[in-house]
């Protein structure tokens, strides 16, 4: 696969705020690439640079090998699905979709077939002559998708396209988006703050924090091998703990032993910081001599979460099934190597 969209050392400031700080990414042709991070991490700024609404102070952006950094949005083969869809309220669904092609000077017959194809693709044939105000949230979202895709962009930018919808609809549209992508094959750049959306939809994800890219990886590797404490904590739940390496694993500050996964080694005696996933910890019945007590039990349907405290350390542990321990119960803990990953930040 070729690299389709290349972002090369891009920086953008707003006053003293570094919205983007030397960001480099390369996005492959035809993939769904997510920009994931909390609000204010720079993902929306980056999206606006890609769309052309804003220009970087430093760095360049290439599309299919061509420098598009200074190209205004109307001349970029890139289209956007806006957060609140930004559908033109004075135009019908059909006219909204026709907006781009008309400006590009498509012929009448070309226009008609393309729009009909798009309406069929997003299943809005019966709403073609409705105004945006008459559409539901999901229909608006699909109209926005059709309006962008009809122009056959090289890259489709999606700015939190599901944020305005309720949970059930969001899950449904996520599946639709994935199948739509399989059908059109366009490169998708998907901006979201919702790790669940990003994990289930994307081929690759860039996790951003404070204007920098923390890690770029496939969803599963992002979860299994977070590169930084931020990524570990942002993607799913985790326990971040400090310890000292010894043979075969790490002795944590509270005396617990954590084995390291295969292929990961550390010289004995070095200070380390680890991420331990809660579902890779085991709880067993303990005695009064054990330091661990269950502090909180939260039933979550298919699984149960426990907060366990002892020796100044607080653990989040997730076990399948209904609650098996009551609050105040004495327990023993065990760490499985599959849930452990080394973080670059050294322990104190």
């Amino acid at each position: 696969m070729d690299d389709s969209l290349v972002i090369d050392a891009v920086s953008r400031r707003f006053g003293a705020l570094r919205a983007l700080d030397d960001v480099s990414l390369s996005i492959r042709e035809g993939e769904i690439f997510s920009l994931l991070g909390p609000s204010g991490c720079g993902k929306t700024t980056l999206l606006r640079l890609l769309a052309g609404f804003d220009a970087p102070e430093a760095g360049r952006i290439f599309l299919a090998g061509k420098d598009i950094t200074a190209l205004p949005p109307e001349h970029r083969p890139v289209n956007t699905v806006f957060q609140n869809y930004a559908l033109f309220p004075h135009l019908s669904v059909r006219e909204n979709i026709a907006f781009g092609p008309r400006l590009a000077g498509w012929s009448r017959s070309e226009l008609r077939t393309a729009i009909d194809r798009m309406l069929a693709l997003v299943k809005l044939e019966s709403h073609a002559d409705c105004k945006p105000a008459q559409l539901s949230g999901g229909q608006k979202q699909r109209t926005a998708l059709a309006r962008a895709l009809v122009n056959r962009p090289r890259v489709l930018l999606l700015d939190e396209p599901l944020a305005a919808l309720d949970l059930k609809l969001r899950q449904h549209l996520l599946v639709e988006l994935a199948s739509l992508h399989r059908e059109v094959g366009t490169t998708f750049v998907y901006v979201t703050h919702d790790q669940g959306e990003a994990m289930s939809l994307s081929h690759r994800i860039a996790v951003m924090n404070r204007g920098r890219v923390e890690q770029v990886d496939e969803p599963e590797r992002l979860y299994r091998q977070p590169a930084t404490a931020f990524v570990a904590a942002f993607i799913g739940n985790t326990n971040i703990v400090d310890g000292r390496a010894e043979s075969g694993g790490v002795r944590l500050a509270d005396g617990l032993f954590a084995p390291l996964p295969d292929g990961v080694n550390a010289a004995s005696g070095t200070s380390l910081r680890l991420s331990v996933r809660p579902e890779h910890m085991r709880l067993e019945i303990g005695g009064l001599e054990d330091p661990w007590r269950v502090a909180e039990v939260v039933f979550g349907g298919p699984h149960t979460q426990y907060w366990v405290e002892g020796r100044g350390q607080r653990w989040l542990i997730q076990q399948p099934g209904p609650p098996a321990f009551a609050r105040g119960a004495a327990v023993q803990l065990r760490v499985e190597s599959a849930g452990v990953s080394l973080l670059p930040e050294a322990g104190s």
């Binding site: 949005p73 890139v78 956007t80 907006f99 962008a148 122009n151």
Partner: peptide, 8 residues
Amino acid sequence: DAARDLGA
């Protein structure tokens, strides 16, 4: 922004 994005 949307209009410019669509080529206007």
